[in-house]
C-alpha cells in the first residue's frame, strides 16, 4: 500500500503530462515558437510570451541573485546571535510562506502605482525577485554552513580580513550550493502566474518587448489566457505552450539536481 501511495501521485502526473503532450504536440512547430499572438488560434504563437519570459528572468536574476546572496552572507557571517537576527530569520521564513498572489498585490501597490513603473517588465521582475528572495537566502545560508569551519580558521590565521576570507574561501567553496539554490528559485519564478497577472501581465502585447519599461506577457500568463477561452483551438495552443513551459522547468530543475549532486560529492573533504 505504501508503494501504491508513493507512486500514485507520480503516475497521475505522468498521465496528465502524457495527455498534454498528446493534445498539444500537433500544434508544436517552429511557427508556433516564432509567431506573434493573434485572434485566430491557428495563427497564434508564443513569440511575445517567451520573449517576455526571457526579459523577466534576466532582470529577476540580476536583481534577486546579488540581493539574496548578500543577505545570506550577512545572516550567516556577520549577524550576531541576538533578537534582531532572530527577528530577521523569523521574518524570512514567514515571507517564504506568504502566498505568491500577495506579492502581486505588493508589486501592484508599490512598483506599478507608487513608483509609476506601470505594467512593465521592471515591475514584474522586481515583484518576482522579492518572491524568490527567501528561497535564495535560505539556500545560500545552507551552502555557506556546509563549508567546514577549519577553512575559515586557516584563512583567518593567515591574517585575512573577514571579507577576504568570505570572498577568497567561503564563496568559492559554497558556490555550487548557492548556484543550485538560485536555479531552483528561478525555476519557481519562471512558472509563476498569479503575481504577474496582478501586476498587469495579462494584456494583449502585439510585439516583443524592447526595453525594461515595456509592457509584457509571459508564458504561464499566455497559457492562462488561452485556457480561459472557450474555443477548442485555443486550448490546444495552451497545451502546446505547456509542453514548452514544462520542458524549460524540468531542464532547469535537472541542472540544479545535477549541480547539487556534483557539489555534494566535492564537499566531502
Amino acid at each position: 500500500m505504501g508503494i501504491i501511495a508513493s507512486i500514485s501521485g507520480i503516475v497521475v502526473l505522468a498521465i496528465f503530462i502524457g495527455f498534454v503532450i498528446y493534445m498539444g504536440i500537433q500544434r508544436l512547430s517552429w511557427d508556433f515558437i516564432v509567431q506573434l499572438p493573434s485572434r485566430f488560434a491557428e495563427e497564434s504563437g508564443i513569440y511575445t510570451a517567451w520573449m517576455g519570459t526571457v526579459w523577466i528572468m534576466v532582470f529577476t536574476t540580476l536583481i534577486s541573485f546579488p540581493l539574496g546572496v548578500g543577505a545570506g552572507i550577512y545572516l550567516e557571517e556577520y549577524a550576531r546571535q541576538n533578537r534582531w537576527s532572530m527577528f530577521l530569520e523569523i521574518n524570512i521564513s514567514n515571507l517564504a510562506s506568504v502566498p505568491s498572489i500577495i506579492y502581486g498585490l505588493l508589486g501592484l501597490g508599490v512598483f506599478v502605482r507608487m513608483m509609476q513603473m506601470g505594467n512593465s517588465i521592471l515591475a514584474g521582475a522586481l515583484t518576482l525577485s522579492l518572491l524568490i528572495l527567501p528561497i535564495i537566502i535560505v539556500s545560500t545560508r545552507e551552502a555557506i554552513k556546509a563549508v567546514p569551519s577549519s577553512i575559515r580558521d586557516a584563512s583567518n590565521a593567515l591574517g585575512a580580513s573577514k571579507w577576504q576570507t568570505i570572498w577568497h574561501q567561503i564563496l568559492p567553496a559554497s558556490f555550487g550550493g548557492i548556484l543550485t539554490g538560485v536555479i531552483l528559485a528561478l525555476s519557481r519564478a519562471i512558472g509563476e502566474t498569479a503575481p504577474l497577472i496582478v501586476v498587469g501581465a495579462l494584456v494583449y502585447v502585439p510585439f516583443a518587448p524592447q526595453n525594461p519599461l515595456d509592457e509584457f506577457t509571459v508564458l504561464p500568463v499566455q497559457i492562462y489566457n488561452w485556457v480561459s477561452r472557450p474555443q477548442e483551438e485555443f486550448i490546444i495552443n495552451a497545451a502546446a505552450a505547456i509542453i514548452v513551459l514544462l520542458g524549460i522547468t524540468f531542464i532547469m530543475n535537472g541542472i540544479a539536481v545535477y549541480l547539487r549532486n556534483k557539489w555534494q560529492s566535492k564537499m566531502e573533504w
Binding site: 577553512i151 580558521d153 584563512s155 593567515l158 591574517g159 585575512a160 574561501q169
Partner: peptide, 29 residues
C-alpha cells in the same frame, strides 16, 4: 598580528585549491 603569528591546526585544513595557491594565499591577501 596574524601575519606575524602563524598557526597550524589539529586537522590539516588546506584550502580546496591547488598546492601553489594554498601557499600563495597569504601573500595574495
Amino acid at each position: 598580528l596574524r601575519k606575524r603569528v602563524g598557526m597550524v591546526f589539529q586537522k590539516p585544513n588546506p584550502f580546496p585549491k591547488s598546492i601553489y595557491e594554498n601557499v600563495a594565499y597569504g601573500l595574495r591577501i
